[in-house]
Nucleic acid binder design. Structure first.
Lengths: 339, 339
DNA sequence: CTGAAAGCGCTTACAG
DNA sequence: CTGAAAGCGCTTACAG
């Protein structure tokens, strides 16, 4: 019950606390004999260094903060798994907080992260986040890695996916299959991910000389329900699209549900391509053609960026962009055409 | 850059550090005027209390440890979301670590949790965990809430789902639909969840007078791949089953894939019921009949148990069991029969 | 190579 | 209601 402290170990081993500290921290300047004695004492007493005390003395922290915007979204879950994996490989732990896309909650958690004195912060900002609202973090000198979403005017390390190219590839694929009336269910343009994917859609249509029919471009809020509602709206309109490109995983699931409920066939009545692949995309009805993001790799890379920043605090800021990959299954109609 | 400390605030406000501490901690014994002055100073300086220092002084911690066994499994993700939500509602943060069903990693993270002096620990143990391996945690006096899986001989607060009844209901449903050759793809019986769900399967068959055909009972390792392999094995056997009950979500996804690849129809060629509902179960091919676990509620309840334990350290240990719910969709063939 | 001592930022009896 | 002071468990110059 009574916690074992460094003092207990020192007494037990008959050395000073300084020596115990050195042994515990692998300082080479300790005589082998003393080292052994201390390690035995640690073992015998079941001593575990108190990290709170260590951090108080300004030691390099071993807790990394991860602030994500939607813990229910499989995309972020996979990112989290990558972060956790890479942190573990570097003997760090992860303090995870979920803002739920709520900026008050985000502010509260940013304060928690500062109060916990995390070694660094990997951060997926909610839509309304401004560079100004992060000054506190930057002033505190906590390394900040921005993940997935950009923030206007914020100077920091940054990691994203090439959303424009990913969306472009998906829409071009549909065009190549012969579809001409291609709708998009987009995410809010307030988010960089939303506007970039929309840009890819526009670029692909324009490059093919099809032009953009603004009535086919619907903007949702990235939640499942809005994918459901907008897909319904599109398919019930006088001139429904031949194909729909949906800008994220949750909206894609909603769109699927809506199309099923309307008893329409995919891809015969309407083709579907989603942004974000999911582990179960192949078991959906029909198997989903999707733009796969390197989610796990995003998490790993974010920690990597953080470690580099910790190692070289004054290095110039980096922006790393990872590429996506189009995975063709059945919902786009590619297999149909082939027959 | 230079961190603002309590001393800075005290000087700025012209009071002692003790007074600042009282204001920050909402001690009522502070004159209103001083309180205002301190709060202004906090605001002006952008002061954030250092939690590491606070914890060092033995203050009730505000970080809660969550150690789960598989961060890739949607079940635990949803639990995590529930924990996070409830923790937030009680001004606590969550330190999440993922053992990945690896006991060395689990041991390492248990040490991390102790070293971080978490206020309490919510814990999903890996299969081989013994009560003995947790003595260190118990001796450290950290409240421990065991989640989902039991550990033989461990005295602590415990939260599970009624696995026996859940599995029983699923199998009985299949029996009621007229199936007589009902297979099960079970999880390892080393886990309480695995053995309990298998128990429910046996009980239901015996209660119906069907008896258990041991050749129809396959044991996997809860991963997707084993669901795939065992479903294949079952369907390629000389006498394939009419229905399969799969004991967890990942194996269910694997079984679905195997059945699709064999070009068999669900439920016409083989009916399927899974343990664990998933947010996308309704969009699977066909929509999946599943035993729904109250995952989010499990997370919330775990934090609740922890808070009660923190409030009453000497109360007798509690075991809370939540009930499951069978969600009937199409994969079981219920709709087919109705026609 | 080793130890005594100062100090990290905070809280909490103890006086007043 | 307020402040001076001790101490939480650790690390790190500084002497030796």
């Amino acid at each position: 019950m009574a916690t074992v402290t460094m003092r207990d170990v020192a007494e037990y081993a008959g050395v000073s606390m300084a020596t115990v500290s050195r042994v515990v921290n692998n300082d080479p300047n300790v005589a082998p004999k003393l080292r052994v004695r201390v390690l035995e004492a640690v073992q015998a007493l079941g001593y575990h260094p108190n990290r709170a005390a260590r951090r108080l003395r300004g030691s390099p922290g071993d807790v990394l903060g991860l602030l994500i915007s939607d813990m229910q979204n499989p995309f972020f879950i996979s990112v989290l798994a990558g972060v956790e994996e890479m942190a573990y490989a570097n003997q760090m732990s992860v303090l995870v907080c979920n803002t739920g896309e709520d900026s008050a909650r985000q502010q509260m958690y940013l304060n928690v992260m500062l109060a916990e004195r995390v070694a660094g912060l990997i951060f997926v900002p909610t839509p309304s986040t401004t560079a100004r609202s992060l000054t506190r973090v930057l002033e505190a000198g906590v390394p900040l890695i921005l993940l997935d979403r950009r923030i206007e005017g914020l100077e920091t390390d940054m990691l994203t996916v090439d959303n424009v190219r990913g969306a472009y590839a998906a829409v071009k694929h549909l065009i190549d299959l012969g579809y001409t009336r291609i709708a998009m269910i987009a995410g809010s343009a307030v988010l960089s991910t939303g506007s970039e994917r929309q840009q890819g859609y526009r670029d692909a249509l324009n490059a093919a000389g099809l032009g953009v029919d603004e009535t086919l471009l619907k903007v949702g809020n990235s939640q499942r329900e809005s994918g459901y509602r907008l897909a319904r709206e599109l398919m019930l309109s006088p001139q429904p699209p031949q194909a729909i490109f949906v800008a994220n995983n949750l909206m894609t699931m909603g769109a699927l549900q809506a199309i099923h409920e309307l008893k329409l066939r995919i891809p015969e009545d309407v083709a579907l391509v989603g942004f974000d692949d999911m582990p179960w995309s192949g078991e959906l009805c029909p198997p989903l053609t999707a733009v796969s993001q390197p989610t796990y790799e995003l998490g790993r890379e974010a920690v990597h960026l953080l470690l580099r920043r910790l190692a070289e605090p004054d290095a110039p800021f980096r922006t790393v962009t990872l590429q996506t990959r189009l995975i063709v299954r059945e919902s786009c109609g590619a297999l149909l055409r082939r027959e």
